[in-house]
């Protein structure tokens, strides 16, 4: 299993890095009200990334403050293991052209 993972990562290394750097380009500073729009822009970008990576579902959800992004990839198996991760909001997605994420084409 480890070799398959390693090979896949090796093949896609450059893209993995570029995608992460694209996220860093949106100034989603949570403490500053002038960046409120950036928080949404960022949330939409994260949602797009989750969908492009294979999540069956990804949504930007309201919280009363800054939005959260929920995404899931569930296997259709009887013995389900659930996980979930909490991290801080990420940034923008520079892959949009004509309203479609370019990443979809690359995957």
């Amino acid at each position: 299993m480890s070799q398959i993972w390693k090979d896949y990562q090796e093949q896609h290394k450059e893209r993995f890095l570029n995608e992460m750097m694209d996220l860093l380009r949106i100034p989603s500073i949570s403490a500053r009200s002038e960046h409120k729009e950036d928080m949404y822009k960022c949330a939409e970008a994260v949602k797009a990334s989750l969908l492009a990576t294979g999540c069956g579902k990804a949504e930007v959800m309201e919280t009363g403050g800054h939005p959260v992004v929920y995404g899931e990839k569930l296997l259709i198996r009887p013995n389900l293991q659930y996980w979930f991760m909490v991290t801080t909001m990420c940034s923008p997605w520079n892959h949009w052209k004509n309203g479609k994420p370019l990443r979809l084409n690359r995957l």
Binding site: S49, E72, K73, L75, Q81, V86, L107
Partner: peptide, 28 residues
């Protein structure tokens, strides 16, 4: 974003054996 890419690796190599839910928040 490491988790997103780790999921991509597992999904695209047909080795995903767990369900994954993401919550990415903006107020940490």
């Amino acid at each position: 974003y490491m988790h997103v890419k780790a999921m991509e690796i597992m999904a695209n190599t047909n080795t995903m054996i767990t369900n994954i839910k993401f919550i990415i928040e903006g107020e940490e």
